[in-house]
Amino acid sequence: MRKIAVKTITETISQLCAQANFQLRKDVLAALNSTYRKETNARAKRMLKAIIDNAQIARREKLAICQDTGLPVVFVELGQNAQIIGDLKQAINKGIELGYKKASLRNSVIADPLSRGKSRFSPVVIHIDLVKGNKLKLTVLPKGFGCENKSLMKMFNPTVGIDAVKKFIVDAVKTAGPDACPPYVVGIGIGGTADTANLLAKKALLRQINKHHAQKRIRVLEKELLSKINKLNIGPMGLDGKTTALAVNIETYPTHIAGLPVAVNISCHALRSATKVL
């Protein structure tokens, strides 16, 4: 049994906070640069330029890409042959607090969703998966709420046609309109129970946006949805243009004979995440 001390986990999480918030993901930056070259609408081009400049300033000056440094979502893949010495969740929350304070990020977490109260850095949302092996994979996804507020999910009848599913997804982007900082990355979760679909939609945002799904059928669907969404003419910052989304990432899971859950989790153009394997 490989032993991993919680101190190492806290330090790693702390570093990932700064990395995720200061350095825009390479795949996202590459997609922005590529759409900047292709965009023909003059204002849309200027807006994309501002987004790219913003990412450069953030990286160079160690400033948050966006002031909404999110409700940090931490994904843990724990190898079943690894043993954590200490309290894992406490170590993660401590790492977030240290990392966010040190990097001067924003304390956007409130302890009680109804009575609200003072905002702080933790507790964050933690998802833990048990996997094969003896490694520990940690991912920090600072999810801003401008886009999180546009999340949608629907429990379809199992007999519904694929066109209804496509329409639901495109309409979800249409409803988000200019509000959630387009160009978007659209995460889609299909299958499982309601909670599975929502989690898959969020996890879909972690996949590199230049990599399509392994299954051909899903790959085709991703491309078709992206093309449909980019015909909405919402454009960068909602001021028109070809670039409404940079990518559509779909993840699926088996489901029940009676249902077809579909969840949409939109990310703004500042799709931030950082991962380290221990």
Binding site: M47, A50, I51, D53, N54, A55, I57, A58, E61, L63, A64, I65, C66, Q67, D68, G146, P178, C181, M237, G238, L239, C268, H269, A270
Partner: peptide, 13 residues
């Protein structure tokens, strides 16, 4: 007015 959305680092300057 609209300000450039998601450009907090740029606007801070």
């Amino acid at each position: 007015f609209l300000a450039p959305a998601g450009c907090g680092a740029l606007l801070s300057k």
